[in-house]
């Protein structure tokens, strides 16, 4: 078996670049509404414009400077806490053992521009 050949190199490069492109296309719009779900059901919707801290199940969350982050959780890996603060549309914080997930869903109706060009 060969270590690498041209065809496979191209396949791998294309997969890599398309994922990279997807991230760049998706990650540049910040939102200010976070939706928190437990086991697939939305249990809480919070605005990121106001600093706040609260519990959902056993996981505590903090809203600060327009970002939401998980601050404590009883789970093993603390992946939710390591995710840090999120603020862009589509970004998520997930705590699998507690079945809690947070997702930034969009911007509230406000005076912001619809589209920023250039």
């Amino acid at each position: 078996m060969k270590f690498i050949n041209l065809r496979d190199g191209i396949i791998v490069a294309v997969i890599f670049l398309s994922a990279l492109l997807f991230i760049f296309l998706c990650n540049f719009s910040s939102g200010d509404i976070a939706e928190i779900s437990v086991g697939g059901e939305v249990v809480k919707t919070v605005s990121l414009n106001k600093d706040d801290s609260f519990f959902v199940g056993n996981v505590s969350f903090e809203v600060k400077d327009g970002e939401i982050s998980a601050t404590s959780s009883p789970c093993h890996d603390k992946i939710c806490i390591k995710s840090g603060g999120i603020k862009n549309v589509g970004e998520t914080i997930i705590c699998l053992p507690e079945r809690v997930s947070v997702r930034i869903v969009g911007k509230s109706e406000s005076d912001s521009a619809d589209i920023i060009v250039g």
Binding site: A19, I23, S37, G39, G40, I94, S101
Partner: peptide, 16 residues
């Protein structure tokens, strides 16, 4: 497990 497709937004990061 989460009954939720939010996790799929994570796919590109995991692909890279």
């Amino acid at each position: 497990i989460l009954k939720n497709i939010n996790t799929l937004f994570y796919a590109p990061v995991l692909i890279i």
